[in-house]
Nucleic acid binder design. Structure first.
Length: 484
DNA sequence: ATGTTC
């Protein structure tokens, strides 16, 4: 039975896949991955954005949305769109303001009972070691402009040269921690000024560092291969490219607005500002975006290394006892040139993932050897009071979603609604009763990010799992949180 | 998300 939301008709394809037929300028159908129950939370604005994206020149297969879809700048968050490199466009709105906002998960050899007595001290020390909040700066000694250039052009390799991490960290980072297309000379002076003292800082909003425990294993075989076991202490880091990436997005939203006119691209929404992938403007954006992506991977790398050092110091452990190791680092906001099947042919496309995670299948040539048999680890954070998930990419994802999955819970309540709902409540105390210790710069941030403002990430992940896009591997429960 | 409206 078709369903209509605000005049938009959705045809049910399978249990959790809904299609919007092409109309008024749409070049491809829209496809939304969502359960019938979750459709009640959809208001139509985000579906309109799925339809708008379907109008972009060169878009192939479908304009896709994951179950954590919600309204965003131009493109919906939770959106995936691929455009042909030969005659398609690239759009900053398809990546978002926090370029390469993403997540990494580091494993330890510890059981949660090993750290329980020192958890509070550990959180305190992590909070002191890692600058948090809007405008946070100065995690490491001041960078010279030439260092920032190396960060943005070589990514994680720069951090390794500085003694921040191991070769395994690079192996276990999407794109091996560096998009080679990055070009520092394409980045504005203003972005460079904002970025130069922000490396190794967490930022604000939904960004966090959490100490977590592996609570449940769903797939024993993949979990074993990933090195996950029940009761294990792990560290999850969620942050992005800070003011550096924000400024680059801001610069190019304006510049590509001009390019849209120059190339006479007809768009249903100005926020979809774009340029042909192979134009000078499109290429400048891509090279700048790649610079911000490399900054973000390096940022997470440095924060992880700072965290590792605090673990060693606070717990008085040797590296051989801590056995700290990066499982994987994924991007949630990025555009990549990849090869995918389009109309029965392998084609080079620009995959925009905005609030979506790459989820490559076993055997994909871009994965490191250690994940060739299992598929890529897909990291999906939930909220600070409940849980997060580790999943694995599948062949179905390659065929249906350009190798992509959901990226998180998705908001239920706006920031202002959250502040009202939190009035008079002792959120720190409520979390403590659940055994979760939080240290944050501002109480407002805790309120804006409290568990109830997010959907249950388990229901989001289940849609992807039931659709065969990813396989659930493990559930993680927070023990301690640091935030901006 | 963001020197949270150059």
């Amino acid at each position: 039975m078709p369903l209509t939301i605000k005049g938009i008709t959705l045809q049910q394809i399978t249990e959790c896949v809904w299609e919007i037929a092409p109309e008024k300028g749409m070049r491809v159908p829209g496809r939304v991955y969502i359960s019938p129950e979750m459709l009640s939370g959809i208001n139509g604005e985000e579906l309109k954005q799925v339809m708008n994206v379907a109008c972009l020149p060169g878009i192939v297969n479908y304009s896709l949305a994951m179950p954590d879809i919600h309204w965003g700048y131009g493109f919906p968050i939770g959106g995936v769109a691929a455009t042909r490199v030969s005659d398609g466009v690239i759009s900053p709105g398809g990546v978002g303001y926090d370029i390469n906002c993403g997540v990494r998960l580091a494993l330890t050899g510890l059981n949660y009972t090993d750290i329980q007595p020192k958890l509070e001290q550990l959180i305190k020390n992590l909070y002191n070691a890692i600058p948090t909040g809007v405008g946070a700066r100065g995690a490491i000694s001041k960078l010279q402009l030439n260092d920032l250039k190396k960060v943005s052009e070589t990514g994680v390799s720069w951090a390794l040269e500085q003694g921040f991490g191991t070769q395994n960290d690079k192996e276990c980072t999407e794109e091996f921690g560096c998009m080679k297309e990055a070009d520092f000379s394409a980045v504005s002076q203003k972005a460079k000024e904002r970025g130069i003292d922000q490396l190794g800082t967490l930022g604000s909003g939904n960004h966090f560092l959490e100490i977590e425990v592996v609570r449940e294993i769903y797939d024993e075989e993949i979990a074993r291969s990933y090195g996950l076991f029940k009761g294990q202490v792990v560290v999850q880091i969620h942050t992005g490219s800070r003011g550096f990436g924000y400024q680059i997005c801001d610069d190019f939203v304006k510049q590509l607005g001009e390019a849209t006119k120059k190339y006479k691209i007809d768009l249903p929404d100005r926020q979809l500002a774009c340029a042909p992938v192979d134009s000078e403007e499109g290429e400048l954006y891509f090279r700048s975006m790649a610079s911000a992506a490399n900054f973000a991977w390096t940022n997470r790398q440095i924060i992880m290394e700072l965290a590792k050092r605090e673990f060693l110091k606070t717990l008085h452990l040797q590296q051989s006892d801590l056995r700290f190791r990066l499982l994987y680092d994924v991007s949630h906001n990025i555009a990549k040139i990849e090869k995918h099947l389009v109309d029965g042919k392998i084609e080079s496309v620009c995959v925009h993932r905005k609030g979506a995670t790459r989820a490559f299948a076993p055997g994909h040539p871009d994965l490191p050897n250690m994940y060739q048999l299992t598929g890529q680890p897909v990291l999906i954070p939930g909220d600070m009071g409940r849980y997060s998930f580790v999943c694995a990419g599948t062949q179905s994802a390659m065929e249906a979603t350009f190798g992509s999955s959901c990226h998180g819970a998705g908001r239920l309540m706006s920031r202002s609604m959250a502040l009202t709902a939190a009035k008079g409540r002792n959120l720190i105390g409520e979390l403590r009763e659940k055994g979760i210790i939080i240290q944050a710069k501002g109480n407002d941030t805790i309120a804006e990010e409290m568990p109830g403002v997010y959907k249950d990430v388990a229901s989001v992940v289940d849609v992807m799992h039931r659709s065969g896009i990813i396989r659930k591997v493990a559930k993680l429960r927070p023990l301690g949180v640091i935030k901006g």
